[in-house]
């Protein structure tokens, strides 16, 4: 008789536990994949493909009005500070690519109307190569590049 009661009790508590677990799972369920994240651009293996995927065109012009601030020699490729600024009017987007990385597309910034065309971040670089900035203004695409020498790679373990 005692055994039966114990069994009922265990069943009951197990069921309650399951409900709590289910509620918890609901709370931390992953969000739907972001539609805005440009899968094609970030998965591209070549600079040309990535630029085309992000800007929608392969007609770009080299511009002296884009400034890339990055070290000439990066001792640690895992952390390369990069700033991109531009004096071109009406910049809507800035992208940063590392030409020698397996996936060159590193970061892309969509700017609001009041946002200044000046962004900074830190990127990984596998080996020495060009850092390329792609600036979109209106329907025009401008690019600039700067070589960064990497002494210790930042990709791979």
């Amino acid at each position: 008789m005692i055994d039966v009661k114990r069994r009922v009790f265990l069943k009951g508590s197990a069921a309650a536990g399951a409900v709590v677990a289910a509620a918890g799972a609901g709370l931390i369920a992953p969000q739907a994949v972001l539609a805005e994240w440009n899968e094609a651009a970030f998965r591209s293996k070549s600079v040309a493909d990535a630029v085309k995927a992000v800007t929608g065109t392969d007609a770009s012009v080299e511009s002296a009005d884009i400034k890339i601030k990055a070290p000439e020699i990066a001792e640690n490729g895992a952390v390369v500070p990069v700033s991109v600024s531009s004096s071109i009017a009406g910049v809507t987007a800035i992208s940063i690519l590392a030409a020698s990385n397996p996936s060159p597309m590193v970061a892309s910034f969509a700017l609001g109307e009041t946002t200044v065309a000046d962004v900074s971040t830190r990127i990984k670089m596998g080996k020495t190569g060009d850092v390329i900035a792609v600036v979109q203004a209106g329907d025009k695409v401008y690019t600039a590049k700067k070589e960064v020498k990497v002494t210790i790679g930042g990709c791979g373990g």
């Binding site: 994240w37 597309m105 970061a107 900074s120 930042g154």
Partner: peptide, 19 residues
């Protein structure tokens, strides 16, 4: 004011600055 898309090519413990 800014929407940033990143890949794994951005450094660990990422830094972002904008104005």
């Amino acid at each position: 004011v800014i929407t940033t898309s990143w890949s794994g090519g951005v450094s660990k413990d990422p830094y972002l600055s904008f104005s």
